[in-house]
Design a protein around this nucleic acid. Structure first.
Lengths: 236, 236
DNA sequence: CCAAAAGTGTTGCCTCTACACCCATGC
DNA sequence: GCATGGGTGTAGAGGCAACACTTTTGG
């Protein structure tokens, strides 16, 4: 009950999602799946196990800044989307000392994902085929996946996996990869168009073996209204 | 970057909602509104201002347990519903030292709400007519209100404001108070019945000036599937 | 009987889904 | 021409809002 500092360690961790082909050396165009990078622990507890990237919060940075910093330090990633997930603080979640983790979840584009410096201690894993992770990180990833899938259905976060311009087929394949089921191209098109979330450009993609698809851009005016009043915090 | 303890104070706070008549001494049956109890700060910073109930986390209790304990200590309330809201950790949210607050939000029944020991330092406030609160607590309440209203539309949390048995009119008045708009009794009945969330009992309420309404009970089998995989944590 | 709230029926609108069909390009 | 994915049209099912209507009580 000290008024100046606590005996509880405060950390941030981040679940970063990217879309990658499920079979990297196999077929020419396999359906993409959800992957995430993990880092190997180089100290006890859980030495050698894979864990979410993260670290301690420095006293003069916000929680979100801490998430971005530790993410860059461990994986060199700069996410296009970053949102708080949950604060995990059960008493026994770390074997050696009491630890409270503020967990964020993030999305990165495939080209950004390539910048991850792979090595002995950083690797990509398919989100639905993880080993036993350190601490309660399996539970955390499950929750983050649930949030990703839930939010993909009612919100417009799919563009965070893509570049500034994209075809409707690309956007649809993002949804299909996350939701793990095929979507009707015709209905998907109408839903996206009527939502006002995307804006057609006057450019098309040539070079395919078929009719050239139109390129779209995200409509930044119609911003997602699904974070509630917390978006106001950015302006203050 | 110490590995044992941080210079960051860790606290929990809770936004507790209850339904109360908006005009307490006025008309015979005014439409109820959303109220919350606040405590007056008895030390700096923000001495004298109203603030959310809360306190420090003890090293051997979970975050949720800390929320329940501090809530009981300051207001004697034991909520029927308690869920984590958000972790607030901006650098400048407390003027004297760095503080990270894990905020919960809770619902209590009106009869429970009466147990609050009112006095100089604890008072109920209408949620849409608050004074300037300590720290960033106005923002926090706004966010909690948004979550309450959003969740009321897709989830079944309204019963947390009621006792074990209730009429459809009572359940509807809870929705109307939270959503601040009238609902069609006929359509509301069908939505609730078809959702399977409520079970009719064989009891009715007599004594009114009209046809006696049937009493309903909540169906605990169909539990809310809207918290995701985190509900599994309770069993572990 | 009358007032008032409980409870039921019905209609029309809107959205989503499934699927048929046309369009534009490379080969 | 033909294969392929881009893009449009459309009929049926289901959900929801609005509102008319019947039922059951107290006075």
């Amino acid at each position: 009950m000290s008024a100046t500092a606590s005996d509880i360690a405060l950390a941030v961790s981040t679940v970063i999602f990217a879309l990658r082909p499920d079979d990297q050396g196999g077929d020419e165009s396999p359906a993409p799946g959800v992957w995430l990078p993990l880092v190997r622990r180089i100290r006890e507890p859980h030495l050698g196990r894979w864990a979410l990237p993260g670290g301690s919060v420095v006293v003069d940075e916000s929680l979100e800044a801490a998430a971005r910093r530790t993410l860059a330090e461990t994986t060199q990633l700069e996410p296009t989307y970053l949102e708080q997930l949950y604060a995990f603080g059960d008493v026994d979640r770390s074997p050696d000392r009491r630890m409270v983790s503020i967990v964020y979840w993030a999305l990165v584009r495939p080209d950004e994902a390539e910048k991850v410096s792979l090595g002995e201690n950083v690797r990509w894993f398919a989100a639905d085929d993880l080993p036993e992770l350190a601490f309660d990180h399996n539970l955390i990833v499950d929750y983050a996946l649930w949030r990703l899938r839930t939010k993909m259905e009612y919100s417009r976060i799919a563009h965070a996996f893509l570049g500034p311009m994209f075809t409707l087929a690309e956007l649809r394949s993002v949804h299909e990869a996350v939701l793990q089921r095929p979507l009707d191209p015709a209905n998907f098109r109408r839903q996206m168009e009527s939502s006002g979330a995307i804006v057609p450009t006057d450019q098309v993609v040539t070079g395919g073996r078929h009719r050239p698809p139109r390129l779209y851009r995200y409509n930044s005016d119609i911003e997602l209204v699904d974070v509630g009043p917390l978006t106001l915090r950015r302006s203050s």
